[in-house]
């Protein structure tokens, strides 16, 4: 299992987490290379289906990274995102995929170090959980 490098898709809000990732880069703070960042205009734009499709296409984990509570540029997009993440987590649990593979986090634009830390921690956690189980099932079926 030690050679397993999880793919983690991060839906990062343009107003905060995406900038934070940028800051982390400029500060030369590293995080695992399996972390793939997708810029979104607001986490409120992240449909539950995006998360599902990321997993279906092979991601091992999904992070939705929005602004700090109270700081959403669109008032409550991050709160909507948190509620949607919760719903997806329940659905994943119901279909036999651990809902903890998906998480909502909040960071501000200046928190480069925090972003790197969160991304690393989450990636490590997914690493411990192992690969997305649908891959194993697909192999077994083939």
């Amino acid at each position: 299992m030690s050679d397993f490098e999880p793919v983690v898709v991060v839906f990062a809000c343009d107003y905060c987490a995406y900038t934070a990732a940028d800051v982390a880069g400029r500060m030369n703070l590293s995080y695992p290379s399996g972390v793939r960042i997708l810029r979104v205009p607001c986490t409120g734009k992240v449909e539950p289906l995006y998360i599902m499709q990321a997993l279906q296409k092979g991601a091992d984990g999904v992070l939705v990274a929005g602004c700090l509570v109270g700081d959403c540029h669109f008032k409550n997009g991050n709160l909507r995102a948190a509620a949607r993440v919760k719903r997806v987590q329940t659905l994943l649990d119901d279909i036999g995929i651990d809902g903890q593979r998906v998480a909502m986090v909040n960071v501000s634009a200046g928190q480069g170090a925090k972003f790197a830390e969160i991304a690393t921690e989450f990636s490590n956690k997914i690493g411990e959980m192992g690969p997305n189980p649908i891959k194993q099932g697909a192999k077994a079926a083939a």
Partner: peptide, 20 residues
């Protein structure tokens, strides 16, 4: 939208069960 969500959930759930 709900069709797409359920379709995705069914595909993944069945893949996990090894019965696509």
């Amino acid at each position: 939208k709900e069709v797409a969500m359920l379709a995705s959930a069914l595909r993944m759930g069945r893949l996990k069960q090894g019965a696509p």
